[in-house]
Computed example of a mutant assay.
Amino acid sequence: MTKSDRDRLDGRRALVTGGSKGTGKAVVGRLRELGADVYATARTMPADDAFPDRFIEADTATVAGTQAVADRLIAAGGVDILVHVVGGASTPPGGFAAITDEQWMAELQLNLLGAVRLDRALLPSMLSSGSGAVVHVTSIQDRMPLFDATLAYAAAKAALRTYSKGLATELAPRGVRVNAVSPGGIETEAYEAFVDRIAEGNGIDRDAARQRIHDSLGGVPLGRFAKPEEIADLIGFVVSDRAASIVGAEYVIDGGTVPTI
């Protein structure tokens, strides 16, 4: 098998959650470029989606939504690749006291429990075939939590990281690889909306809000956040045969934000 062959995903069926925009959309595109038959899911299908027969409109933060996605993929024959990109924060600024029980549960459902439910439904077919690759998209906030507006999100992503590591240890002997990809800031529509929330909640302009976000992270040595396509390239590698011995890892892609030795 050549290096080029090991990059390819021909003949493999993939599911990408949060696949309608931003990083998820970039991952869908990259896996298709590598030859995979890719299904995407999100709450709303974009009007210009080029593969409407491969799009599943569902809210994976709900039990009914995850079941609808699982039913569709099981009927298609299961998946070989599962990439959980969907996630986000919607809590108000103001620190821990501003987060209600309902908001805590919403963050956990979106950022943790949707992935848990889909794994439970779709991994049995991978285990039956003795192969498969799963990627959970976490966040550097699982180790560098921000208290203003994203504390619940950070806690949910930390739980996803721990769950991912335990799942990897359990499934590796049966041929299924589980890994995590941990981005820092990404230049997406969701990030721009977050900037707006910080600006509005603190009575500052958007440039000051951006600077506050960078300062809260201790700076970004690269000088910019990652582009969605850069995250997608990394995920394309992690699910490929070139990463066949990588199990239980968490790849940080953050422009140097997390201090390392």
Rank of each mutant, 00 (worst) to 15 (best):
L234I: 03
Y163M: 04
R210V: 09
Y191H: 08
S20V: 04
R30M: 14
V116W: 00
A152T: 12
A68D: 03
L34W: 02
G184Q: 06
V86K: 00
A159H: 01
A199F: 10
Q141P: 10
R12Q: 15
A244H: 01
E33V: 12
M1D: 15
E57I: 03
L167G: 00
F96G: 07
D205Q: 08
T188A: 13
L146H: 07
A190M: 15
G94L: 10
A97Q: 13
V69N: 10
S245N: 09
N111V: 07
A68W: 00
P92R: 05
V258E: 11
Y39P: 00
L108M: 14
G78V: 03
D101P: 01
L234Y: 00
K157V: 12
L82P: 00
R6W: 05
S216Y: 03
E200L: 15
E170N: 03
R224A: 14
E250C: 13
Q211F: 04
I246P: 00
F147Q: 13
A36D: 04
S131Y: 06
F96Q: 09
D205A: 05
D80Y: 00
L118H: 01
M126W: 03
I74V: 11
P221H: 11
T17I: 09
A172V: 14
A58D: 05
L123C: 02
A68M: 07
Q211R: 09
R54D: 05
R32L: 14
V27S: 04
G18V: 13
A40E: 14
R210M: 09
A158R: 07
E229D: 15
R12S: 12
L34C: 12
A244G: 06
D5T: 14
I74Y: 02
A158T: 12
P228I: 10
G24K: 01
A98N: 08
V38M: 07
I99S: 07
K21H: 06
A244E: 13
G77R: 12
L110R: 05
P145T: 15
V252A: 14
V239E: 02
S90W: 12
R197K: 13
T66D: 03
P52R: 05
T257F: 06
P124I: 12
F147W: 11
T62V: 13
G248T: 11
F51M: 05
L15E: 10
G65I: 11
F194A: 12
E57G: 08
R161H: 12
P173L: 13
A158L: 10
D119Y: 00
T257A: 15
R43F: 05
P221S: 13
V258N: 05
Y163T: 07
L123V: 13
I81R: 01
D215M: 11
V195L: 11
D37W: 00
D5K: 15
G22N: 06
A156D: 01
E192L: 10
L15P: 06
H84T: 02
A232W: 07
N111I: 06
K3V: 15
Q109R: 00
T257Q: 10
L151W: 08
E33L: 06
V28H: 04
Q211K: 11
V239S: 07
A75C: 09
K165E: 03
G88Q: 04
S245Q: 08
D59Q: 09
G132H: 01
A42F: 04
V176C: 03
